[in-house]
């Protein structure tokens, strides 16, 4: 027998090739179409926003982990992903520093202060967006039109203003492709759906959350919408529902891990979104809906614990 040390591990001796890092980079890859679409529609400024946010997020992660003397794990891609989502949640007209501030807040306060990867109780990028919206309201609604970058309102804001004039509303087709005002990453439903289908195909995200989220929004908007505007399709394509349902609500850390819990979570997200959009103060409610459901996620999970195999009245 050769003199060679055998590695003795606890079973299983086979493990799936999927790693945390691979998951993170797959999600980043799935976001590329939407990010590319934002650069096409909003120009170089979109690229700068995204780059600044990503760099700030990674740098913050590095600095905080260094200060806290933790293991540096900026290469796992989670900080890059947070930065990318942060950048895609900004309006094109916002000043460039705002993404950096958001990323620093997202990583330092929402993620690392609560214990780092896997410990945050809210989606970092969304919490940062909510913070930015509260801190700099005017900068965070500086929407511009694609290509020519003229100040404009988002389709949802137009609908919210309550002018039942279909002429001022963008065409659904434009909203599908992304030719409307909005945050960088949320305008092109098409690009987001490509990413989403890829993620579901790769089994990185669970179809239950996007399906129940989008389904609830569609059904409720159809029921409560005024004809012409506020239709189900309009609310599905307008604003951040696609981005939120596919990339934000499905964040593992802040969503329930049980199958039943995921249905409830997705429906809750959709319900709060529509509540805010129809009867709330803001034209858009996706961020707040997801944040609220993030906080409820542990509770939902505890109420939807799976029934163990063989849980029946004992025979005999």
């Amino acid at each position: 027998m050769e003199e060679n040390k055998l590695i003795v591990l606890s079973a299983p001796h086979f493990k799936s090739p999927l790693t945390t890092k691979k998951i993170m980079f797959t999600v980043i890859l799935a976001l590329i179409p939407a990010a590319a679409a934002s650069v096409v529609f909003f120009g170089i400024k979109a690229l700068l926003h995204i780059l600044i946010s990503v760099v700030a997020a990674v740098a913050t992660e590095f600095v905080v982990q260094k200060l806290l003397k933790k293991k540096i794990n900026i290469t796992d891609g989670s900080a890059i992903l947070t930065g990318l989502l942060m950048g895609m949640n900004l309006p094109a007209g916002a000043p460039l520093w705002i993404g950096a501030v958001g990323s620093i807040f997202a990583i330092a306060v929402v993620k690392e202060a609560f214990g780092g990867l896997g410990q945050n109780f809210m989606n970092p990028a969304l919490a940062a967006r909510a913070m930015l919206l509260a801190a700099w309201p005017s900068q965070m609604v500086s929407w511009v039109t694609p290509i020519d970058a003229i100040a404009t309102a988002t389709p949802l804001a137009i609908a919210k203003a309550g002018v039942p004039d279909t002429a001022t509303l963008p065409l659904l087709w434009d909203m599908f492709i992304g030719f409307v005002g909005g945050s960088l990453g949320e305008t092109s439903a098409l690009a987001l759906m490509i990413g989403g289908i890829y993620l579901i195909y790769k089994e990185i995200i669970d179809y239950r959350i996007p399906l129940s989220f989008l389904g609830t929004v569609f059904v409720l908007a159809t029921i409560f919408g005024v004809d012409g505007i506020n239709s189900g399709l309009f609310h599905l394509l307008g604003g951040g529902v696609m981005l939120g349902a596919i990339f934000m609500a499905t964040d593992y850390v802040t969503s329930p891990s049980t199958a039943k819990g995921r249905w409830i979570y997705g429906i809750g997200c959709g319900l709060i979104t529509i509540l805010i959009r129809f009867w709330g103060g803001y034209p858009e409610g996706v961020s707040f809906a997801i944040l609220l459901m993030n906080i409820c996620a542990p509770l939902i999970e505890n109420y939807t614990l799976p029934t163990k195999f063989g849980k029946v009245a004992k025979v005999k």
């Binding site: 000043p95 306060v109 202060a113 913070m131 509260a134 801190a135 700099w136 309201p137 900068q139």
Partner: peptide
């Protein structure tokens, strides 16, 4: 200077005290 309005509002108080 683009001051962060949130800091003088209620959420700012919680965030600052917590940090």
């Amino acid at each position: 200077f683009p001051v962060a309005k949130v800091m003088v509002e209620a959420p700012g108080a919680f965030i600052t005290l917590g940090l």
